[in-house]
């Protein structure tokens, strides 16, 4: 579904990603682990086109996307949920969903506001509420719902558990597993290993822009050495 080969990215003069390669399959939840500044967010931003890679190939659904604009990549069915949520605070819940809306896509689950309100019951009661008057947890639900309105076949989640109460994080984990059930490919970045353990099938560990480790969650759990070296736990 998503295949990254030898990608290098930079912000201005700061080189962030070095020969990064990874892949994710349909119906799979893959987690990118690493500390702040390791390059997790940059990886996701490069995939969605917000950062243009200096070199390397990115294929999505069999198409090369590394030279496309973000809106073109999004229209191919790759959804992006940013760090810090970035919902439109002036717009109501329904209007936020409208911005994300795209035409249905073959081979991807279809979403309507009604279906999303079943997935996020909290949002159903606040359709006309402006984003500015929602709590952090509600905003996190909305930002995911908004991306799903584009009927993506894969989504990128940047630190979905950051700054959320443990109860909300547990709900978030449940939601991600439901999306997996729907057949979505999910690539998320995380620092919270507890959370990653709840949702992910496979993990990549990134440090200073290099992939240092890849394996299933079970393999990672068994490898105390790797966890101690790269994740500082």
């Amino acid at each position: 579904m998503l295949e990254v080969k030898g990608v290098n990215s930079a912000y201005g003069r700061a080189h962030i990603l070095y020969d990064l390669s990874l892949s994710a399959k349909r119906g799979e939840v893959v987690v990118l682990l690493g500390r702040n500044g390791a390059g997790k967010s940059t990886t996701l931003k490069t995939l969605i086109g917000l950062v243009r890679p200096l070199a390397g190939e990115i294929s999505f659904d069999g198409r090369r996307i590394e030279r496309l604009e973000p809106y073109q990549i999004a229209r191919l069915g790759l959804g992006y949920v940013p760090e810090e949520r970035r919902i439109f605070t002036d717009l109501s819940v329904m209007e936020n969903l409208e911005v994300g809306r795209q035409a249905p896509r073959a081979g991807a689950p279809q979403w309507t506001p009604a279906k999303l309100f079943r997935l996020f019951p909290n949002l159903a009661g606040m359709r006309e509420r402006p984003g500015a008057r929602m709590s952090g947890g509600e905003q996190q639900m909305l930002t995911i719902a908004r991306t799903l309105m584009g009927n993506p076949s894969a989504i990128l989640l940047d630190e979905p558990s950051e700054g959320l109460a443990p109860v909300i994080v547990e709900q978030m984990a449940k939601t991600i597993l439901e999306l997996k059930q729907e057949g979505l490919c999910v690539l998320l970045s995380e620092q919270n290993l507890h959370f990653a353990n709840l949702v992910a099938d496979r993990a990549y560990i990134i440090e200073k822009g290099h992939i240092r480790y890849q394996g299933t969650m079970a393999e990672l759990a068994a490898d105390g050495q790797v966890r101690a070296t790269y994740l500082s736990v």
Partner: peptide, 8 residues
């Protein structure tokens, strides 16, 4: 930027 990432 966010609007762009949502396909606008």
């Amino acid at each position: 930027e966010m609007a762009g990432a949502l396909g606008v």
